[in-house]
Design a protein around this nucleic acid. Structure first.
Lengths: 334, 334
DNA sequence: CCGCGCGGTGGGAGCGCTCCCATAGCCTAA
DNA sequence: TTAGGCTATGGGAGCGCTCCCACCGCGCGG
């Protein structure tokens, strides 16, 4: 591989001039710039990022901490972040992290500081004070997605609000016996705003004077989780609700499948509303409250960039809007 | 942030000794090593990766090129790669790449060479000769997953074989009118061994003397894609096959849902077999041919590590086994 | 005519690390 | 006794880049 010294020599200028010609800053005459560019391209010169990074102090890369990759929300989010970073020329360094504390400590104590990352996007993770302190030491601005921390910048939707919208839609249709599906109390499943959604459902029920009907079926926020929870809850003809608010679309779709399996017709006998607007929602004609993880990823990159430019600005909190998408999984009760 | 000079000063030794004490190589007495370690930990010293990388020539990171993130196979693969790299202390730099050639050229010409990555894992991408040449220049060993290139190391399953296994299972059950579902000819959907699977189905049909029944319904390798293709193909009572081989489980599940929608009972009236053993296969009682993307990701990391140690060794080709998993979506035709 | 500002260029220090090489003490074998 | 090897340490060059600063020539205003 050729270095900038080779390029400079070939163009007949100094290293300093070559550097200026290629990476922008300072005075370079147009002909000189052209000469250097030509030389660089003839040698197929590409600057060594470690050298650049060492000299400038910026690493041109952003760390992304993800608790999972195999769920729609996270995959979409990652795609959004990826697209945003691509546009700004930053590389994406991916750190998977199960809630295993040893790994997590290692990540914050060593791995992240080592890289001197230009920024960090933490998904669904509440960094502790000590962890934040480590990051501040290396001056990596942080933006979290979906976490509701006080002192740090964050992007999310209003989870409680989304669940309220979903619940109110059912109430408006005339339902009273509305149950909440999914949203396990188990933190190990990286409850991603799940409690907030449950809380939003409760609020809407209370506000409508339906406190007596409040109940929920635990389950993983996945399709099989929703399926099982639905089958469990709908099994008894007597006690079964007329409508379900699911913690997310995957669970909702599981519930749709489960209801069919039980011979219940959706929406005639059971209304189901989800939260997400998952790519499969259309196929199952699912009424849902849309959130756009890709947009959240892009927004996080935007916020991060602003923080990189102005590290001392006050933390920025961005709440993206939620919108009801009515399809054919909800109807008035008979 | 403190540097190794600070650590050395605090421990009362030279930079050289401090470096040796912390990163292994060379002679250091036990007490000195302890002193240095203590100093490092007191200063919460973490080596600057760019400096290390510049000095050693190794970047401690591996690039991963992914055509998509929102499909089960890719997400699982990425999780496997991630786990493998975590174990070997390498960072994962993620590059998403749609088949837009401008971006792709940029990636191979500039982005990857700039990083001086220790290795590259390319998923479902056939690097061109010129692209490989660029990588060889920067001495990044490459392992591809799912691509069937000649000169490079690769990990994959035997796609044709998997489809043959699926088809033969149906033939063994007594089916004759077996169609193939999905596997669009459209390269834009990153046909991931799809043609090979179609070919495997054909081979099995031919071998069983069922050439007359060979046919397939185009469709995206997704759940909605499989749903649509199935509805299209199963619409006509007269011409409909008694069994389907789906290009992947997502399509197969879509077909299961579509069949139910049409009032066809699976497996009594229609047998369906997929390829993947998707996490939802269990829920839909789907008979399928298992492939394990996580294992493929881990295997790719393994192969890559070997290539990093011995860059001049002959390219290594690893084909992971496929195995039939019989559930309840297949049965003898009536 | 001189001084000054400004466009343009080069020299070289320095980013933080590793690793080669020199040095030094000490123990063992001839 | 002394050469030689072996452990332990330090000095400092060098990885490839950027950027500060010095320098230079030229045009222009006083």
């Amino acid at each position: 591989m050729s270095t900038i010294a080779d390029v400079a020599a070939r163009a007949g200028v100094s290293k300093a001039t070559a550097s200026r010609a290629l990476s922008g800053g300072g005075y370079v005459s147009a002909p000189t710039r052209e000469k250097v560019r030509a030389a660089a391209s003839e040698l197929s010169y590409v600057a060594h990022s470690s050298a650049t990074s060492l000299a400038t102090g910026r690493s041109l890369s952003v760390g992304v901490i993800m608790p999972a990759l195999d769920r729609w929300f996270f995959a979409e989010l990652l795609a959004g972040i990826q697209a945003g970073l691509l546009a700004s020329g930053q590389d994406l360094v991916l750190y998977g992290i199960r809630e295993r504390t040893a790994e997590r400590a290692q990540l914050f104590e060593e791995v992240l500081p080592r890289r001197r990352l230009d920024g960090i996007i933490a998904v669904g993770i509440q960094p502790s004070a000590r962890e934040l302190e480590r990051l501040i030491r290396v001056e990596s601005p942080l933006v979290s997605i979906g976490a509701y921390s006080e002192g740090t910048s964050a992007v999310s939707i209003d989870d409680a609000g989304a669940a309220r919208i979903a619940t109110e839609h059912l109430i408006d249709l005339g339902h009273r016996d509305i149950a909440f599906l999914g949203g396990t109390a188990d933190a190990a499943t990286h409850a991603f705003g799940d409690e907030r959604r449950l809380a939003g459902y409760r609020q809407a029920m209370m506000a409508a004077g339906l406190a007596a009907f409040v109940r929920h079926a635990d389950g993983e926020p996945t399709m099989p989780g929703g399926y099982e929870a639905a089958v469990r809850m709908l099994g008894d003809r007597q006690s079964r609700p007329t409508a379900l608010v699911a913690v997310c679309d995957e669970a909702a779709i599981g519930a749709v499948v489960g209801a069919r399996r039980l011979g219940l017709s959706v929406p005639a006998e059971l209304s189901i509303v989800g939260i997400d607007d998952h790519e499969h929602a259309e196929m199952f004609a699912l009424t849902t409250v849309r959130q756009q993880p890709r947009a959240q990823g892009l927004a996080a990159v935007e916020v991060l960039r602003r923080r990189m430019d102005a590290p001392d600005a006050a933390p920025e909190r961005q709440v993206l809007p939620s919108e009801l998408v009515v399809r054919a999984s909800t109807a008035a009760p008979r």
